[in-house]
Amino acid sequence: MKEQLIKAMQRNQLVDLMYISKSGEISKRRVKVIKITSDSFQAYCFLKNAKRTFILDNVLAAIPVMHREREVI
């Protein structure tokens, strides 16, 4: 999981997360990873429109958002 987040940060990609909070609530969030430490990471959360700190062990899934340019033919 951590390796995926590092790659997304290096590539400046957005990531869709499934995250479980301390209280056990599961949420889907789109984030932009800013900084990664040994057990957590900082990211801008588009759901809350603010910078948040996430615990790596609480990330259930992380999928990089792929943007494809559409061409008019």
Rank of each mutant, 00 (worst) to 15 (best):
K2P: 09
K2T: 07
E3K: 15
E3I: 12
E3F: 15
Q4Y: 14
L5P: 05
M9S: 04
R11N: 06
N12C: 05
L14S: 13
D16C: 02
D16Q: 10
M18W: 06
M18V: 06
Y19N: 01
I20W: 04
I20L: 01
K22H: 14
K22T: 11
S23P: 03
S23H: 09
S23R: 08
G24I: 00
G24N: 02
E25T: 08
K28E: 12
K28R: 11
R29D: 05
R30A: 05
V31D: 00
V31L: 04
K32T: 00
K32V: 04
K32I: 00
K32Y: 05
V33M: 01
V33F: 09
V33E: 03
V33N: 02
V33A: 03
I34K: 04
K35D: 11
K35V: 02
K35R: 09
T37A: 10
T37N: 14
S38N: 13
D39N: 06
D39C: 08
S40W: 10
S40D: 08
F41M: 08
Q42E: 11
Q42R: 08
Q42P: 03
A43F: 15
A43T: 04
F46Y: 13
F46L: 04
F46M: 05
L47V: 07
L47A: 08
L47K: 10
K48C: 11
N49R: 11
A50Y: 15
A50F: 07
K51F: 15
R52M: 12
T53Y: 14
T53V: 14
T53K: 13
F54Q: 08
F54D: 01
F54G: 00
I55Y: 15
D57M: 10
N58I: 01
N58Y: 00
V59T: 05
L60P: 00
L60E: 00
A61N: 08
A62E: 04
I63E: 13
I63A: 10
P64C: 09
V65A: 01
V65L: 03
M66S: 12
M66V: 11
H67T: 02
H67L: 11
H67A: 07
R68N: 15
R68D: 14
R70V: 10
R70H: 11
E71P: 06
E71C: 13
E71F: 10
E71G: 13
I73A: 12
